[in-house]
Computed example of a mutant assay.
Amino acid sequence: MSKFMEVAANRDYSKEWQAPGSFPWIFQRPKEPIAGRPIRVKDNYTRCAKGEQPYWMPAYFYESNIVWPDAMEEHPVPEVDGYDWWGVNWMMVESAGGMITKPETRTIADFSNWKAELEWPDLSRVDFKTDGQKIQNMLDPDRPHIYECVEGVFERLHELIPFGESLMAFYEEPELLEEFFQKMADYKIESTKKVFENYGRVDGVLYHDDWGTQRAGFFSNEMFREQIMPATKRFLDYVKSQGKFIELHSCGKNIQYIPMMLEMGIDMWTPQLFINEPDFLHTTYGKDMTFTFPLMIAPDWNEDQIRQAVRDFVDHFGENGRVMCWIMVENFDQKLEAIAQDELYHYSLKYYNKLYDRK
C-alpha cells in the first residue's frame, strides 16, 4: 500500500476534514428545508433531469444536495496543496477557485509502464461507513442527493502524467490506452458502489470529465467514439442500472459530443458558461437532454427588474421542461437571489400547470 493510500486508510472520518470555504466544504453544508411545494423537491428535480414534465423549473444548486465524501481522496483531503491517494501533487489556485495538478507532476515514468508502476487505491482499507453516516446527517431528505463523481477516466490520465504525454498516448499506445481506460472504469464502478452502499439515498451522479477547450473538443468525434466512449459508457451504464440519473460536468466547448453523450445515457449537461450557446443547445437538443443555463442578476437591479428577468428566462427556455436555472448574482447578494428564487418557483409553476394542463 502506498504512503498516500495509507494516510487515507487511517483517517478518522467521523470528523470533518474539508477546509472551511472550499468547494467541498460549501457543498457539504446543511441546507434549510424547502416547504410548500406540490411535490417533493427531489421528485421535481428528477423529473426535470429526465424530461418527465416537472411542476416548476428547478433553481440549480439551491434545490439539490451534493454528496461529496471526505473518504474519496480524488483530491487532497483537506483540499489544500498536497497529494491525493494516487500520489498526484495538487495545488490550490485561488484566482480560479479550485485545484490543479502541479505542473509537470507525474506518478509514473512513462505511460507505457503504467501496468508495472501505477499503484491503484485499495478501497477496502477506507472507512466509507463512518464517513457516509457523517455526510448523511447533513443532507436534506427532501432535496435530491447527487454524488459528485470527480476526476473522470480522461482527467485521471492527465493527472498521472503531463497533459501532452496523455494526448500522445492516443496515437502511440491506443491499445494500452484502452486497457487503462477500462481498468479506470472498473475503479469508478467500485468507488461509486461504495458511495451507493454507505451514503444513504443517492438520486443522481454528477460525472466530471473535461473534454475540451474554449474553441472545441480535445478529440475528433471519431477518436472520442473509439477511445473515450467505451469505458465511459460502461461506467455510466452501471450508474443507470442502479436507477440514478446522470448529469455531466464537462468543461470546454463540447457541443460536438452531444450525440454521443445521449448514446451514453447522459440525462443532463451543465455546459461551461459563456462558450456553449444556450439558444443553440435549447433549439437543437432541448427535447433530448436537460441543460442548466445561467441567469445573471445585476447587483443594481430592483425587485421588478429581477422578477421580469426570471419570467423572460422561463418563457424563453421553459417549453420542453428540460432546463434548470442557475441564478447568479454578483457579490453573492442573498436578498437578490431570494427574490429570483421566489419568482422562478411561482412563475414557472403557473407556466408548467398551463403547459401540461394541470389543475
Rank of each mutant, 00 (worst) to 15 (best):
V67N: 11
P76M: 08
W90V: 01
K102C: 09
I100L: 10
G98D: 07
P78N: 07
V77I: 13
M99H: 01
R106C: 06
E73I: 07
E104M: 13
P76Q: 05
P76C: 09
P69G: 08
P69H: 08
D70T: 12
M99C: 06
P103S: 04
G82I: 05
T107K: 12
P103G: 06
N65M: 07
I66M: 15
T101M: 08
M72A: 15
G97L: 03
V77W: 00
A96Y: 10
R106T: 08
G87P: 04
V77C: 08
W68E: 02
D81M: 06
W68L: 04
G82S: 03
T107P: 06
H75A: 10
T105D: 15
T105Q: 14
D81I: 03
Y83N: 02
W68N: 04
G98W: 12
P103F: 04
D81W: 06
H75D: 08
H75I: 12
M91E: 14
N65F: 00
I66C: 11
G98M: 09
I108K: 09
E79N: 10
D81Q: 06
A96L: 14
V67C: 14
W90Q: 04
P103Q: 02
S64N: 05
A109Y: 10
A96Q: 12
I108F: 10
A96M: 14
D84W: 05
Y83S: 03
D84V: 01
W68V: 02
I100W: 09
W85G: 03
W86I: 07
T105H: 14
W90R: 01
V88D: 03
D81T: 05
M72V: 15
N65G: 05
K102G: 07
E79W: 03
V67R: 11
H75W: 14
G97W: 06
A71H: 02
N89E: 10
G82A: 08
T101C: 10
S64V: 09
G87N: 02
G87K: 00
W90N: 08
E94F: 00
V93T: 01
M91K: 12
P78A: 09
W85Y: 11
A109Q: 14
K102Y: 14
D81A: 09
H75T: 08
D81R: 07
S95C: 03
S95P: 00
D84C: 05
W85V: 05
E94Y: 03
T107F: 09
E104G: 03
P78G: 06
W90F: 14
V88Y: 04
N65I: 02
D70S: 15
W86H: 09
P103N: 02
G97T: 03
P78H: 06
H75V: 10
V80R: 13
E74L: 15
